[in-house]
Simulated scan of single mutants.
Amino acid sequence: MTKPAFLITIDTEGDNLWQKHSSITTENARFLPRFQSLCEKYRFKPVYLTNYEMAVDPFYVEFARDVIARGTGEVGMHLHAWNSPPEVPLTDDDWRYKPYLIEYPDVQMREKVEFMTHLLEDTFQTKMVSHRAGRWAFDERYARLLVELGYQVDCSVTPKVDWRTAKGAPQGTGGTDYRHFPYHAYFMDENDISKPGTSSLLEVPMSIQYKHSALINTLKQGYDRLRGKIRSPSVNWLRPAGGNVDTMKRVVQQTLEQGSDYVEYMLHSSEYMPGGSPTFKTEAEIEGLYDDLEALFSSLQNQCEGMTLAEYYQRKTGV
């Protein structure tokens, strides 16, 4: 019997982008070899979804080329529109607002996606086939661009999560509402990305589960409506948050019990560095993160098969 896949996705980007920077540093690249070694210990293969500032960082480039050469991971594309060339202002302070790529005109969207694709392919001498949108913002125009450029896998969908209250450009309508999207892998309909279709682009949604039962969620939402508030039900991700290893294991089990043939983990590259994120600020917190990862990975070692997104696509298509 084929084991479910364990997919490790890393949004590989600058240091602590949660802060309002006017410039970006990439010190976190130097902390990735430790994580890569842990993955290799358990025969897992991370996918480094790489954005602009990391793609031009010499240390990261050398590290990722080695990963590719040894077949121990994959490099894919990740795009933060506000600092990815060609830079064309969308707001009066793009570095403050961090507008979504899907808020840009079609021509600028295309230019940015094409630039990043060619930069990564030229730098790493391999075809880019995997992608995640910056700030999880995705739409039909974006999907069609990826298909045109030969991408095979997207992993931008966060089922059960509504990002519309997370603003990008002040004049925009916020991020994408994924509450009613599928939570299993599916080939997208290019004209309605919330539905399966006949395109060549395989969507691999994040592994996310509700924190509470359907009954409790219904009661909580009813109470919120009485107070004039509209909120999505609380969720748990397959994502470290400090001391949440039991929660992550529960997300894995719930996801597999629902019939999924994969579970998908994510974290930002900067979260493996002390002070690189709001979550793991100290060396002690980073050590706690690695304790949790050891516990999670050891529990999955015999239950799942580690593979890249490209390898998962090959499993799904038989190609």
Score class of each variant (00 low, 15 high):
57 D>N: 13
72 T>A: 01
56 V>N: 10
56 V>Q: 09
31 F>Q: 12
68 I>Q: 02
62 E>I: 03
50 T>M: 07
42 Y>T: 12
35 F>R: 12
55 A>C: 12
56 V>R: 02
37 S>N: 15
44 F>W: 04
59 F>K: 11
79 L>I: 08
37 S>I: 12
34 R>K: 15
62 E>S: 15
78 H>Y: 03
76 G>I: 06
63 F>G: 12
33 P>M: 08
81 A>T: 09
65 R>D: 10
52 Y>S: 05
79 L>N: 08
76 G>P: 12
75 V>A: 03
81 A>P: 13
44 F>T: 11
62 E>L: 08
35 F>C: 06
60 Y>D: 11
53 E>D: 14
76 G>C: 09
66 D>F: 02
82 W>D: 10
68 I>R: 01
61 V>M: 08
41 K>C: 10
81 A>M: 07
35 F>E: 05
38 L>C: 05
49 L>W: 00
59 F>L: 11
37 S>G: 15
54 M>G: 02
53 E>C: 05
78 H>R: 07
63 F>Q: 12
48 Y>V: 04
43 R>N: 13
42 Y>M: 09
39 C>L: 08
79 L>E: 05
61 V>R: 14
35 F>W: 04
75 V>R: 03
53 E>R: 07
38 L>M: 13
62 E>Q: 14
52 Y>M: 04
80 H>Y: 03
32 L>Q: 14
51 N>Y: 00
81 A>R: 07
48 Y>R: 04
76 G>R: 07
41 K>R: 11
42 Y>S: 09
65 R>V: 04
35 F>H: 07
34 R>G: 14
48 Y>E: 02
31 F>M: 11
57 D>R: 05
40 E>V: 13
34 R>D: 11
75 V>I: 11
73 G>L: 04
70 R>H: 11
79 L>C: 04
31 F>S: 13
29 A>L: 00
68 I>Y: 00
66 D>L: 10
64 A>F: 06
75 V>S: 03
47 V>T: 09
46 P>A: 09
44 F>K: 10
67 V>Q: 07
48 Y>C: 05
77 M>R: 04
43 R>H: 14
49 L>V: 01
36 Q>P: 04
69 A>V: 06
49 L>D: 00
81 A>H: 03
76 G>F: 05
62 E>A: 09
54 M>E: 06
67 V>A: 04
33 P>R: 07
34 R>F: 05
40 E>F: 03
49 L>F: 00
44 F>A: 12
73 G>Q: 06
78 H>W: 01
58 P>L: 08
53 E>N: 13
75 V>Q: 08
75 V>H: 02
70 R>T: 14
46 P>G: 13
67 V>T: 10
39 C>S: 12
80 H>V: 06
79 L>Y: 01
76 G>L: 03
65 R>Q: 12
44 F>D: 10
48 Y>S: 03
34 R>A: 14
45 K>F: 01
60 Y>V: 10
35 F>M: 11
80 H>I: 02
71 G>C: 05
76 G>A: 09
43 R>K: 15
44 F>N: 10
59 F>T: 14
82 W>V: 08
37 S>P: 07
63 F>C: 10
82 W>Y: 14
